[in-house]
């Protein structure tokens, strides 16, 4: 018998209305390779800080209990793609049972990982933090070359690109314009959601950052329309 893999997760939410289409069961994986200043659940960043191990079978049982109530499952985090072997295994089982799976990922891993996962993951929800590499580094502590490359490679599997607008980091016109133009050049129909930075759960001192005003967000939406993006909105 083949050993089923284990994964380390922070928690499971049976019902979520904000992690993809319809009602979704969300699994938050433990551990992330980025260190975003606006992270809402920083306790999931350090792999060793929190979390519990769960086997593929145990996770599948949890999902089956909720199956009739959900449009699908979303793997989030932390960064779920760091545990891609286990995800592939549970993903194949879900696929066999007709249960849809999305991954909310930072797209930092080598393309080959997402290539493999594409066979069992229906769509990716992607966080694009910045276009400019320096801004990205300031926001997350890491470079973004691989992320941009993956967005280009897997755009037809992307459910939504999320851009958190963080005052003092990526909220200037030029940077947002670059992000939106980059996305437009990939696909004018790509779904783009601009999200206001919000301080809830965010670590000090970043929780002092101001929430962007509506008129700023609206001006970015207009900018997106001018560029030619067909599906852009903000929250």
């Amino acid at each position: 018998m083949v050993m089923k893999l284990e994964m380390k997760i922070n928690k499971i939410i049976n019902f979520s209305s904000v992690d993809g289409p319809g009602n979704r069961l969300v699994v938050f994986f433990q551990g992330c390779n980025l260190n975003c200043v606006y992270c809402h659940n920083p306790e999931t960043i350090d792999y060793n800080q929190e979390g519990e191990f769960i086997s593929v079978n145990q996770l599948f049982e949890r999902i089956k209990k909720a199956e009739k109530y959900i449009s699908g499952v979303t793997f989030s985090g932390g960064e779920c793609s760091l545990q891609s072997d286990a995800i592939f295994e549970i993903g194949e089982i879900l696929k066999k049972h007709g249960i849809k799976l999305m991954m909310d990922t930072n797209f930092t891993q080598p393309s080959i990982i997402y290539e493999k996962l594409s066979s069992c993951v229906d769509a990716f929800i992607v966080d694009m933090k910045a276009y400019n590499g320096n801004i990205h580094k300031a926001l997350t502590g890491s470079a973004n070359n691989q992320i941009l490359k993956n967005i280009q490679s897997f755009y037809d599997k992307i459910y939504e690109v999320r851009v958190v607008v963080v005052p003092g980091y990526n909220d200037d016109f030029e940077e947002i314009q670059k992000i939106l133009r980059f996305l437009y050049e990939i696909d004018e129909n790509i779904f783009v959601k601009l999200i206001k930075f919000r301080p809830y759960g965010v670590r000090k001192p970043y929780n002092d950052i101001q929430i962007p005003e509506d008129h700023l967000m609206e001006s970015f939406i207009s900018l997106g329309h001018e560029i030619g993006l067909k599906n852009i909105y903000y929250k």
Partner: peptide, 20 residues
């Protein structure tokens, strides 16, 4: 109130509960 932005989520919950 955030559920207003995703009525499909409530639809799923309703269907699931009727199913049970």
């Amino acid at each position: 109130p955030t559920y207003r932005d995703n009525i499909d989520a409530l639809y799923d919950i309703l269907k699931g509960s009727f199913n049970d």
